[in-house]
Simulated assay, not measured.
Amino acid sequence: MSWHRKDGDDLLLFLKIQPRSGKDAFGEIMEDTRKLRIKAPPVDGKANAYLVKYLAKTFGVPRSRIIIESGLASKRKRVRIKDCGRLPQALHES
């Protein structure tokens, strides 16, 4: 299984979030998840809100199309991006 897959017109991402990072960046692929470093702290939902904002910018979609389906209180998250055609070129595995 990959860290992402199509589900109809949507794209599902399987991420392991590392909050309080020095910079925002996608990291290594770990079996069926991909590490994502974000600057926001995991306090009062700030990391989740920041994650939605960061993914919307990265994928070029409105924030309303980003849904954290599971893992709201966990580092491991399943995120749905509604009506997302494909991964940005920079995120393709080699």
Rank of each mutant, 00 (worst) to 15 (best):
M1P: 00
M1L: 02
S2V: 00
S2L: 06
S2M: 00
W3A: 02
R5S: 09
R5M: 08
R5W: 01
K6L: 06
K6H: 04
D7E: 10
D7Y: 06
G8Y: 10
D9M: 01
D9K: 07
D10L: 03
D10V: 10
D10P: 04
D10E: 10
L11V: 06
L11I: 05
L12F: 00
L13E: 03
L13N: 12
F14Y: 14
F14E: 06
K16E: 13
K16L: 12
K16H: 12
I17C: 10
I17P: 07
Q18P: 01
P19W: 02
P19S: 06
R20I: 04
R20W: 10
R20H: 07
S21N: 03
G22M: 10
G22L: 10
G22K: 15
K23C: 13
D24L: 00
G27F: 14
E28C: 10
E28N: 09
I29K: 11
M30D: 10
D32M: 07
D32N: 12
T33L: 13
T33G: 01
T33S: 08
T33Y: 04
T33F: 11
R34A: 03
K35H: 11
L36P: 14
L36Y: 11
L36G: 15
R37L: 09
V43W: 06
D44A: 14
K46Y: 09
K46T: 13
A47N: 13
N48Q: 08
N48L: 03
A49V: 02
V52D: 09
Y54Q: 12
L55E: 00
L55Q: 05
A56W: 11
A56Y: 07
K57N: 14
T58L: 04
F59E: 03
F59V: 13
G60F: 08
G60I: 09
G60M: 07
V61S: 10
V61I: 15
V61P: 05
V61E: 13
R63F: 01
R65C: 12
I66T: 05
I67L: 15
I68M: 04
I68H: 07
I68S: 03
E69A: 09
G71W: 09
G71F: 02
L72G: 00
A73W: 02
A73H: 13
S74T: 09
R76S: 14
R76H: 15
K77S: 02
R78Y: 03
R78P: 01
R78C: 12
V79N: 04
V79S: 05
V79F: 02
R80E: 00
I81F: 02
I81C: 01
K82R: 15
K82G: 02
D83M: 05
D83I: 04
G85M: 09
L87F: 03
A90S: 15
L91P: 08
L91G: 04
E93H: 11
E93S: 14
S94K: 15
